[in-house]
Design a protein around this nucleic acid. Structure first.
Lengths: 157, 157
DNA sequence: TTAAATTAAATCGTATACGATACAATCGTA
DNA sequence: TACGATTGTATCGTATACGATTTAATTTAA
């Protein structure tokens, strides 16, 4: 699908471009990290944990923009592996505090190298990227705040 | 872009912005389409089929940028529902031709209304969007063509 | 012209994702 | 302070995704 000047098409294309590029990045990183078993979502988790120290699952959920029920099993596996720590809070028995381990930090450091190196190879124009990222952030805010219109028709399963 | 050490880092990563906005759009559309059971990937399939007529699964795979093994079960369900047709090619028994049905067209038309309506509400600046989309397309091409550097370390599962 | 490579789909295993639900812990309030 | 509301996690069901493998059909080559 190419960019036409038809407004109707453009509306549909923004989400398609996002959808599509997201999967391209996913394949790219899964290839880059292949030997390691690290995935992009796990990378995001390690980034957040290293940056903002131990935190509860719900806090991490908010930072990474991923639902807590998605993180829950993921964190369990990462803890079993040894990349993160995971323990019930004493203050509030409902909460589970997760933090990065030295092993996790090591993995993260290496992943960062991969990304930095790969990024240079991509040859992306920095200025364009900054503009685009502002647009993406702005758009994400709008989408998150919006209440989408609903139209119903016989369901497709 | 230098990868420094803080959380703000996540926001500075292009891939994070894409990852994040993609899920926001996903939630948005799943809400918009909720009564219908239509999902964004299915919408993309219907778009492609309506635009470029009946085609094989692998052709559709290339157009939508989704692997054929992802489409295969999805198409089967959509055909059972009646939104698309699905039949072995006579020329080449390996191929399966899929096409959109009148019901599928109807669903697509209604989905387009939802999207158009919702899009106006979002209040996105058209010029910024066009620039961003060019950047996204360009970037996707670069990412798809790139051979990511690989660094290995003990696996995380 | 038959065997070897290639191709198209389907299937399998695994990893995200999310809404709905369950459940325990904590909080607010009558 | 008892009890209903809320909160934090975990679990369940479903829907994508993708790589690896399988199977069947077709093409290429020897």
């Amino acid at each position: 699908m190419s960019l036409s000047t038809n407004t109707e098409d453009l509306k549909e294309l923004l989400c398609f471009n996002i959808y599509s590029l997201n999967r391209s990045f996913g394949r790219y990183y899964s290839s880059a990290f292949s030997e390691t078993g690290l995935t992009y979502p796990k990378f995001v988790i390690l980034m957040a944990l290293e940056a903002d120290g131990p935190m509860s699952i719900s806090t991490l959920s908010a930072k990474a923009g991923v639902e807590a029920n998605t993180l829950s099993p993921l964190l369990k596996k990462m803890a079993e592996f040894g990349a993160i720590t995971r323990q019930r809070s004493d203050d509030d028995e409902r909460r589970v505090e997760v933090g990065i381990t030295p092993m996790g930090k090591d993995i993260l450091a290496r992943a960062r190298e991969v990304i930095a190196k790969g990024f240079e190879d991509l040859g992306i124009d920095p200025k364009q990227m900054i503009d685009a990222m502002h647009f993406l952030e702005e758009t994400r805010g709008r989408v998150d705040r919006a209440s989408p219109p609903k139209l119903s028709f016989d369901g497709i399963t």
